[in-house]
Amino acid sequence: MKKVYARPAYCMNCHLCEVNCIVAHSRSRDLFRAYKRENLRGTARVIVEERLPLSVAVQCRHCDDPRCVAGCISGAMVKDPETGIVYCQEDKCVGCWTCVAGCPYGAIRPGEKNGRPVPLKCDLCREADEPACVAGCPNRALVFEERRAGA
């Protein structure tokens, strides 16, 4: 499946992927409303890990055999059999955070939306052609492509 891959040589630590992620996952899809009215600052589903000068954007790897899905006690976390995308059916989540504890990449963070628990994790912008983090990366440090296993 097509996944987001980081190219650390060109990641310049601007964190705009996080901003674009937040806007793409907001109700309004508007930068100012997302931050100023919906208060979504800090809810990015992609996180830029820094060990300067190196930095790299980390998000869900959409594993073949995802531990978050195996561990989910309410059946909220699922892997779409067609697209391979691992995502959370937010209305079913009970906030036990087993997925957060189980993710080997640290790519899931606990969050909340309208007072309900929501695991913050990448869904590859399921409805868009290209994830917002990739589309908005100013230095092409993120690419969305098909790679062979182990490549």
């Binding site: 310049m12 601007c14 964190h15 705009l16 996080e18 901003v19 100012f32 931050y35 100023k36 600052r41």
Partner: peptide
């Protein structure tokens, strides 16, 4: 009114 405090300016 516009700043969303994403800190891109500080990092860059």
């Amino acid at each position: 009114n516009k700043c969303i405090k994403c800190l891109a300016c500080v990092r860059q």
